[in-house]
Nucleic acid binder design. Structure first.
Length: 162
DNA sequence: GCCAACGTTGGC
DNA sequence: GCCAACGTTGGC
């Protein structure tokens, strides 16, 4: 079981949008960074969990939890000439941008803000604080549990994600 | 809106 | 393969 953090701009697609989506699922499209793509393609597995992080907004924060439900998907937006994520250099026979499908699990009782995370000595090693621009990041088991605790989940609820 | 950090592009 | 120019991210 591995844990991740996925960034999204809430004005474009928020955790509420995911919760309201059909089957509470979406294909995580639009990642156009090779390091992030490599994680999605090679390291993220079905049934891993991920934090849904709101970036580029008034109060950057972790908003909710999602679960990886499918992997190895060609990001459809790379072939859509109308999409801002269109990549004319990607060959449909050998797609450049591979991604995953995620499902909303639960919103955090209390979103955990970037500001709070910066002030938390237990979270200083987080990629979010040190590699701020990477849009797909690993989260350690210790960090995962600590964040859920800070966000107000009960011990019983936290253990569901082991 | 600014700008620092850093990833990508392309000429050589 | 180097590296300058350029583009993007994302907090503030």
């Amino acid at each position: 079981m591995k844990y991740w953090l996925l960034k999204s701009e809430p004005d474009v697609f928020s955790y509420s949008h995911l919760s309201a989506a059909p089957e509470r699922r979406t294909v995580w499209d639009g990642v156009r960074n090779y390091q992030a793509r490599n994680l999605l393609r090679d390291a993220v597995s079905v049934n891993d969990y991920a934090f849904f992080y709101h970036s580029s907004c008034k109060e950057p924060a972790i908003a909710g939890i999602c679960r990886i439900v499918r992997t190895g998907l060609a990001d459809p937006s790379q072939f859509n000439a109308q999409s801002p994520y269109f990549d004319p250099k990607s060959d449909p026979a050998n797609p450049r941008w591979i991604t995953v499908e995620v499902e909303a699990v639960q919103a955090l009782p209390r979103p955990l803000t970037l500001k709070e995370m910066r002030q938390d000595s237990a979270l200083q090693e987080m990629a979010l604080l040190n590699r701020a621009r990477l849009s797909v990041q690993p989260v350690s088991n210790t960090e995962w549990r600590h964040i859920l605790q800070q966000a107000g989940l009960s011990a019983a609820n936290i253990s569901r994600f082991n």
